[in-house]
Nucleic acid binder design. Structure first.
Lengths: 156, 156
DNA sequence: CCAAACTGGTTTCATTTGTAACCATCTAAA
DNA sequence: TTTAGATGGTTACAAATGAAACCAGTTTGG
């Protein structure tokens, strides 16, 4: 019996990871070069910009980050005075996070750049290809156990 | 003028990354739990299993890894006696890497598991969805500047 | 021939990451 | 109540990572 061979370049986990890594690396220029943010910091900013006030747990769920990443990102954004924490009245474990004016300014500056980046990425595709990307990703997303898209230890 | 908002969950770089991360994390069980391999080590094994003898540089190109990752992964697999290095006759900087019998055994053990993993992942999709995933990923791959899919500092 | 530039690969150092332990608070059940 | 367990969040520690410096060896152009 023949030795079974795996073609790495056609292996789904590998292709996905490599693509995500390449895209993410290129995109990171926008938040890293301009403001020296890490990815978790960018996601935190994006989450708060999008939703207004959130708790750290909610942030982790929305942006699929481990709670330690959230904790560190929040600490850094707080240090920059891009966000403030306010204690919850009823439950003193919880803190509500909100962007400051400076945080909002950074967010407003970055959103158009992010959108332009995505637009340019997709502009290289035909309409059919664009549709395939969209529906392919959506299909994979719904196919994976939801829990896996969140961060493991968040859910349990 | 309204504040522009970015919906993170629909943002392509984020979706790709989250998906890749979830899939990769789940897949990593196969090489991590069984053999305590890291992802670079797994990729190195996969590359050598697939192509036979390769140089470290070739490995980095094939599997999109930074050369330091390759170097470390190779060192570890060598420590396990899963591969051996042989010097090149003409160019003494180069070393050719080959799996040992033990390395091959591990490879042969893992390939079917990897294939089963992928099969199960795709089995949850309809034929159309499967096609969309395939063509969507392919489209993105060809659309990104080739260089970006390799590792930056490899190419330059 | 010889120096400059280049290439394959390793190492060092600072940063980022994940796991697990941890503290504080809250909830529920006896 | 009291106490055992959950939950929000932080911290400590070890491992993984990336950038840049580095050490051979090799090639190139004068």
């Amino acid at each position: 019996m023949e030795p079974e061979i795996l073609e790495l370049e056609n292996f789904l986990p590998y292709r996905l990871y490599r693509l995500a890594d390449a895209v993410s690396r290129e995109f990171s220029g926008i938040y890293k070069d301009r403001h020296g943010l890490t990815r978790p910091e960018w996601r935190t900013l994006a989450g708060l910009g999008q939703h207004g006030t959130m708790t750290a747990t909610a942030l982790g769920e929305q942006s699929a980050m481990h709670k330690t990443k959230v904790s560190r990102a929040v600490a850094e954004l707080e240090r920059r005075r891009w966000l403030i924490r306010t204690a919850d009245e009823k439950d003193r474990r919880i803190e509500h996070l909100t962007l400051t004016a400076a945080g909002h300014a950074a967010y407003r500056e970055m959103v158009p750049l992010a959108k332009a980046f995505e637009r340019e990425l997709l502009a290289r595709l035909s309409a059919d290809e664009h549709a395939a990307v969209t529906s392919g990703l959506a299909a994979l997303e719904t196919s994976l156990p939801q829990a896996r898209l969140r961060v493991k230890s968040q859910t349990l």
